[in-house]
Structure formats: C-alpha cells, structure tokens
Nucleic acid binder design. Structure first.
Length: 818
RNA sequence: GCCGGAGUGGCGGAACGGCAGACGCGGUGGACUCAAAAUCCAUUGCCCCUUGGGGCGUGAGGGUUCGAAUCCCUCCUCCGGCACCA
C-alpha cells in the first residue's frame, strides 16, 4: 500500500478535469436549474487568504452536490473590478488601473483554481470591461428614463481622505466604509438614484425572503419607516410676513406640550425665518455647525445641545400658542421636514435643549393617568392626555388618530409616513468606474448619451483633487463633445458611477454573459433566476444587498424581468481570524494563505478543515493543528480504502453486513441533511465517525466484502464535493464505474437500514440514570416497562415498592417515579 | 439607548424537551523505533470513595415539566449592527 501523496493526486486530477470540462454549466432541458452564487468579489492586490475559503468552499460543496443530484447548476465567478484601491495603486505606481486589475484577477483566479472551486470559467465576467459596463450605463439610462435618476446640489457625505462622495450607506456611522476615516459635508451637484420611491416595497418584500434575521433587521432599520403626521405651524416674521413651518412628528399626541420649534442648520428657509437682529448669530452658528464632521455631530460624547434663537415665533395651530423657533444641529437635514416641534416634557433631546436654554416644559401625557412630573427628565411612554384642550382624557394612540384627523379637516396637517433611507448618491469623482452616460448642453440641459458604451478615455493622471473634480474633467478631447439632442457643442459628465452600480445587476449577466445586443437573454434569465442561493459576508447588509434589490424592482417595473427579488436564499459566512485571534491583515502579519496550506496539506485538507472548523456562520480562529488533524483523517480514509477487499463476493457475515449498512445509512442521512442545512462541520464529523467505525472493524472487512465495498463507494460519493481529489483518486483505484466520481449520482439510503433490531435504552429513577437495558426495537411500551422493572439495580432501588409512575419513551428511555 | 445573536470541558465545538460534552485539537499512558518524527492503541468534564459506584456540572437566579443546555420570566457578560431620524 502506498501513502497518501496529495501533491501527485491533485496535480493529476486538476489537469484531467480541465480537459473534461467538468464544471460547464448544465444545459440538459430535462433537469431543474440551480443558481448558486458567491458575492461579486473585488480583486484586491493582497490575493485570497484562507478566510475567503470560508465563503467559496461551502458554495462549492453545495453546487457539486446539486450537480450530483441531477440539477443543471450555474455557479459562476466574475470580478467587481472597478474601484478605488486599484485606482489608488495606479496613482502611486503609474501603472494603468486596467493592468492592475488584470494582475489582481489573475491571482484570484489562480488561487480559486488551486482550491478547485467548480466555477464555470467560460462565463467569467469583468465589470470594467466595456462589453459589461456598456450595460451598466444602459441601466443608468433606464433609471433616468423612468424618472429615477436626477441631479441635485446639496450637502453630500464627503470623505476627505479618499476625496470622494459617499452614499449614506457607505458613510454609515459617519465613517467611510473604505478607509474608516471621518466623513464631512460638502456642497456639490451630484447624480442620485431615487431609491426612496421604493422604500415601502424594499421593506415589505423582505418578509418573504429566506435571509438571516440579522440582515433583514438591519435593512428594516435602515429603511426606518415611521408613521406620524406633518403639521403646518405659521411663523410671523419681523417684516410681518407669514411663512409656513411644517414639522414631522410621530408624537402628535404631545403637540399641546410643544414649547418651541427647531430647524436644522441646513433648513432651506432659515434666512427667511431669521430676524435681522439675530442674523449674524444664526449665520455664525450655521457655519460652525457645517465645519463639524458628521462624526462629531453624531458622537455620543458630543451630544451637548447647541443652538441659536432665530428671533421668530411659530404659532401652534392646535392651541394658538406662540413659541420660539431655534436653529440647532440636533435636528438633521434630509429627514422629515428638517424641522421639528419640540416637546421637552416627552422627548429626551428636547428636554436637554429646554434645560440648557431655560425654556418652558409643559406636561401633556400621563402614563396610566398619573402625571410623572417634569423635574427628572422627559416621559416618553404613552398615556392619557392632559392639558390638551378637547383631547384631554384620550389615550395616546387614539389621540394621535383623532388629532391627525382634526388637522386634516382644518387643513393644517395630515397623517404621514416617513422613511429614514435617503436617495442614493451614485456619482463618483473618480477615473476607474463606469462613466455616467450623460451630456450637458447649455441649451438642452442634461441629455442621455445612448451611444453606448461611453468608454473611459486614456488620461495622463488618475489623481483626484480636493475640489471634487473628477480626473476625467482633464481629458478635454473626451469631455468636449456634441449634444446628442441639438448637435451643438456640449460637455460630457465627468463623473463615474459608484461600484455598487456594477454589482446591482451582475447576477443577471451570468445567465447569458456573452450576449452582444442586450444586457441579458430574457429566456436565460427566466430559466436561471432568481438566484437560489447567495453567499457572502454580512458587511454588505445595507449596501450591495439593498441596491441590488432596488435595481431588480426597477427592472421588474420596466417589464424586463419577471421577479421582484433577486436573491431568494441568503447566507453569511463567518470570518476566519488569525491564530492570534485578530482579524487577518498584512500589517499584523497573521495572514494565512491558501497557497501555503495547499502546499503543506493539500487542497482537500484545506477545504475539509474550513468546513470542519466550526459553524458556517461563526467567526473562528485559524489553527494549524486543526488542519493537521483533518489531514490525518484523510490519511486514515486513504488507508481504509486501500485495504478495501477486492472481490465483491457474497457476504459471509450477515451481522457485520447489516451493521455496516446501518452505519452507512445513518451517515448518508446525516451528511445529506447537514450539508443542506449548512451544517458542514457536523457533516464532516459524521464522515469521520463512519471512517472510525470502518477502521475499528477493518480486520473483518473480508467477511462482508460486498457490502463493505458498496459502503466505501457511497462514502466516496458523498465526500466528493468536500474533497474532490482524494475521492476521485480512490474511486479509480478501487475500480468503481464511470469517468469521474463527480458525475456519480448522490446515493440514497433505505429507511429500514436506519433501524436496528434491538435498541439500548436508559432507565432513569427520578430522572437519574440507574441502568441500561437492551430491548427489541419494536417492543411495546408495556414490554419495555416490564424489562426496566425487571433490571436488578432498578429492583433493588425500588426495594419491592410499586413504582408510582413510569414514563416510557420508546427507543430512548424509561423514567420511573417511585 | 434600540435591534440582532451568543454564553456548554484546557481549546474549536456537538446535542427533534429525553443518555450533556458527538467530532476534532490539546494532554496523559502505552506500542513500534537504537532513538526521534510519523503512525497505531488506550485514556481524558470536575470532585469523592481503592473496585463497583456516588455526588456536582451547560453565565446567575427563579419557574413550567416525570424530565430543561433546549421552553418561560428576571438579571449579568460578550459579539455584531444602528444610534440626536423628531
């Protein structure tokens, strides 16, 4: 018997499989489709670490198993190739981003092949290829045509370090998603996608998705639906003008307690609200507020309330009371009306502001009818209304409804639903992205350029600048063009699209990646989509995953596709941490690469260890001793298979044969069930247990040779998706039929093999185990009970007394209560 | 603060309300070896009694149940996300 020589085995099969086109997407019309997709990777310069394997190996196992089960499987791979780091590298080294991208994708692909992922490389796509981004631009125009892309000048999230505008999603928490730097505000004209038109659908369609609860809940929070009312206050300015001041509130029941109003520093009519004698102070406050980073404005430690009186008073339409209007940065621009009524008795923030500026606090809601007083802070709970005129005595819920109805009748307000999600700023002041296909003409305004692709020009330097001007602006020959509408000289838009635009439709492209005249073949899309299984990291919860859902809904509305949700099932893999328990990073020097592990233990051991380490979704610490253990297991598998009896004659020992069949059936059942439910770690444990069992009976194998051989064949078949090389090698060494184990059908097992003739049962007295009995598997409860009571230890514990109660759980235990 | 998730041996982790700790790592003892590595065998939750047992054990405390790691309540800790959204 020779040793398990993984290098020779892996080299041999890698080459043979390539010639066999083993992983081509299935096209047999009689088979059902299964679309298994990994998140679109951004090919970074660092290459893959073993952490990436935690994403790619499980989908690889599922797709291989589905193929063995007879599905046509689509498991593609491509590159989300546009993006900043590539461009930064290009700026630093002068190498063209295209070349950097090529280098990085080659590394990724080589490493993916090293671990033998079963991608159909004939469908590889690259989002920075004009044949691809042509269609990204096409969808930009689709959104434009449907009124969902627009330009606006406003204060944008701006990352000074990356010198780029960020979407709200990319700047969550006031930090840039790429560099973790603090975000500031910059007033710029930008392109937006009107994702807010889809708020309600993005929210309600989540219900039917099989996604992790955490991701769904993050999206729900992000969309942030709240029901309330919009109420128009009236402001009398110093010049005697009347201007409206609309506020949004979810607590209309507290409006009789409003003692002041607050507008955001960015409030559009702030100057109209400000009296001349307060103007200087207000302007000063606004400019100071603007200089603070968002992070500062939001930071818990910085939440000391600041603000300035505008000099104006607003009239509360419910009680005619005149209350002062302040400007303060605790009211945010872009949500609701950017103006609030402040009820210090029933809102913490308003309370803090009122205390600081010595403003009135009027209590109007009494939880349980008991006024809580206003000395120790605000009372947020619902209750019965007091000091609220004709609404006194109503409970908060009813009051909100009645008061909204009252406002509607009187014409100064209405019930209103608001969402926190903002429109998606999609333009980027960068070179390495898909150009926005618009032309700006003095006469016609922005005009779509339908002559796609609008290709990236060659430029001297990719360096962005602090002004937010794109490097494309310097490519004058390219910028200066003619208006597609009137033919006069006009200028191209010099922004590119955020990379999340490219990844908002790539899953459609994979269905027909070489389609020339349209983004996809609708028949192919209808066959393959929506995606059956989507796997990637949780960090895209409110970025990619919300944008892709949005684009899908737009395409659905446009009649391009027949489904509303792109990804039916989503799973998030956990991270692999370095052996020091820290996140793997070059700077910490704790990165483990697949290359070194494949070199030392082989691709099969690496794959199997990644599956076995722990639960799929858990963060786990890498351990070289762990992979060594799995490698030893493969050695045991190798030796047990090499000893497999040659001649499949009759079984001489029916009892061993039956035992083997039982263990096999249990193993097949567990592996099948566990892989389906993403419990790869326990599936591997089941395989180990089976090999351990065979190993313990290896001396006798020839007495049940036929069954034994069959068991080895099935074992190799279900292990093949996890460890493709060793199983293939053993398959051929043992002379099993067919060109490759990987096309062998997934084995079935019989229910009768799962059952045993006799079962061991535990006998408890008052819940404590006191004895074990062996009974016929089909024994009646009465028989089991008799056997339990007959046991000498039980009899001695009972000491002749009659048991009070006996609980029998057939096949498991007997519990006796004396 | 709000939302989501998790607390089980020395470690990673298993356990349809029914034998807690599967499987693996690590440890210990042994075999093979001149020796070591590799491999194989045995053992390994803690405590007590020499055997056979007995007791205690799933973050803490209560509850439901014949029976709870699992269900319910209260609390603590940790991880992830959001956080002045009116």
């Amino acid at each position: 018997m020779n040793r398990y020589d993984f290098r020779a085995i892996e080299d041999r099969w890698r080459a043979r499989w390539r010639k066999m086109d083993l992983y081509l997407t299935g096209t047999d019309p009689d088979r059902d489709p299964f679309y298994c997709l990994d998140f679109f990777p951004y090919p970074s310069g660092a290459g893959l670490s073993v952490g990436h394997c935690k994403n790619y190996v499980p989908t690889d196992v599922i797709s291989r198993k589905k193929r063995q089960e007879g599905y046509n499987v689509l498991h593609p791979m491509g590159w989300d190739a546009f993006g900043q780091p590539t461009e930064e590298y290009a700026i630093k080294t002068g190498v063209h981003p295209r070349e950097v991208t090529g280098r990085n994708t080659r590394t990724y692909k080589r490493q993916m092949k090293l671990i033998e992922t079963d991608y159909d490389w004939s469908r590889e796509i690259d989002s920075s290829d004009p044949d691809y981004y042509k269609w990204t631009q096409y969808f930009f125009l689709l959104l434009y045509d449907r009124g969902l892309a627009y330009q606006d000048t406003s204060y944008q999230m701006w990352c000074p370090r990356c010198r780029i505008v960020l979407s709200n999603e990319e700047a969550a928490g006031g930090l840039c998603w790429r560099c973790d730097g603090e975000v500031t505000r910059k007033r710029m004209k930008q392109w937006f996608f009107k994702i807010t038109d889809y708020s309600e659908r993005l929210l309600s369609d989540l219900d039917d998705l099989d996604w992790p609860d955490s991701i769904k809940s993050m999206q729900r929070n992000w969309i942030g639906k709240s029901k309330g009312a919009e109420i128009d206050f009236t402001v009398h300015t110093a010049s005697g003008e009347e201007i409206p001041l609309s506020v949004f509130t979810t607590r209309l029941d507290t409006i009789f307690g409003a003692t002041f109003c607050v507008v955001a520093p960015e409030y559009s009519r702030l100057s109209d609200l400000t009296t001349p004698e307060r103007a200087e102070e207000v302007e000063d406050y606004v400019s100071r507020a603007r200089k603070r980073s968002d992070r500062d404005r939001l930071a818990v430690s910085e939440r000391e309330k600041t603000g300035v009186f505008t000099g104006s008073y607003a009239i509360n339409p419910y009680n005619g009371r005149e209350i002062p209007v302040f400007v303060a940065d605790y009211v945010l621009e872009g949500y609701g009306t950017s103006a609030i009524m402040a009820v210090p008795a029933h809102d913490d923030r308003d309370y803090a502001f009122a205390k600081k500026f010595d403003l009135d606090v009027v209590e109007v809601v009494a939880p349980g009818g008991e006024p809580q007083g206003v000395e120790d802070g605000a009372t947020m709970a619902d209750g019965l209304l007091i000091n609220s005129g004709s609404f006194d005595g109503l409970d908060s819920q009813t009051a909100r409804e009645r008061m909204a109805e009252h406002a509607r009748r009187e014409g100064f307000g209405r019930a209103e639903v608001r969402y926190r999600i903002r429109d998606w700023v999609v333009s980027r002041q960068r070179y390495w992205g898909a150009p926005i296909p618009m032309v700006h003409c003095d006469r016609c305004g922005p005009v779509p350029d339908r002559d796609l692709p609008v290709e990236l020009p060659e430029v001297e330097s990719y360096q962005p600048d602090e002004t937010g001007r794109s490097p494309l602006a310097r490519a004058e020959d390219w910028v200066e063009t003619t208006c597609p509408s009137c033919g006069e000289p006009a200028l191209r838009d010099t922004n590119t699209m955020a990379c999340f635009a490219c990844s908002s439709w790539y899953f459609l492209r994979f269905a027909s990646p070489h389609e020339k005249d349209r983004p996809f073949d609708p028949r192919a899309v209808e066959y393959w989509l929506p995606v059956d299984l989507y796997v990637g990291g949780a960090e895209h919860a409110v970025m990619h995953l919300i944008y892709a859902r949005f684009w899908t809904k737009v395409m659905y509305d446009a009649g391009l596709i027949g489904f509303r949700e792109p990804f039916l099932v989503l799973r998030n893999q956990g991270m692999i941490l370095g052996e020091d328990g820290q996140k793997m990073s070059k700077s910490k020097g704790n990165v483990v690469t697949p290359d070194e592990m494949v070199e030392r233990y082989g691709a099969d051991a690496l794959r199997l260890y990644v599956l076995f380490m722990g639960p799929f979704e858990a963060d786990l610490v890498w351990s070289e001793e762990g992979i060594a253990g799995v490698y030893r297991f493969l050695g045991r598998l190798w030796s047990i298979c090499c000893e497999c009896p040659e001649d499949p004659g009759d079984d001489k020992s029916p009892s061993l044969a039956s035992e083997v069949r039982h263990h096999l059936a249990t193993t097949l059942m567990r592996v099948t069930r566990d892989v389906e439910s993403f419990k790869f770690n326990t599936a591997v444990a089941a395989l180990m247990e089976f090999v351990n069992f065979l190993s313990s009976r290896r001396e006798e194998s020839s007495t049940a040779a036929s069954t034994w051989r069959g068991a080895i064949r099935d074992l190799l078949t279900v292990m093949a998706p996890m460890t493709p090389f060793i199983t293939e090698e053993l398959w051929h060494r043992l002379g099993f039929s067919g060109e490759t184990v990987h096309r062998h059908p997934w084995p079935e097992w019989s229910e009768s093999d799962l059952k045993r003739d006799t079962v061991e049962m535990v006998v408890q007295v008052r819940g404590r185990i006191r004895a074990r009995i062996t009974v016929d598997a089909d024994a009646s409860e009465e028989e089991i009970k008799r056997a339990a009571l007959r046991h000498e230890r039980i009899a001695s514990i009972l000491d002749g007394k009659e048991p009070g109660r006996v609980i029998v759980v057939p096949g498991s235990l007997v519990n006796i209560i004396p």
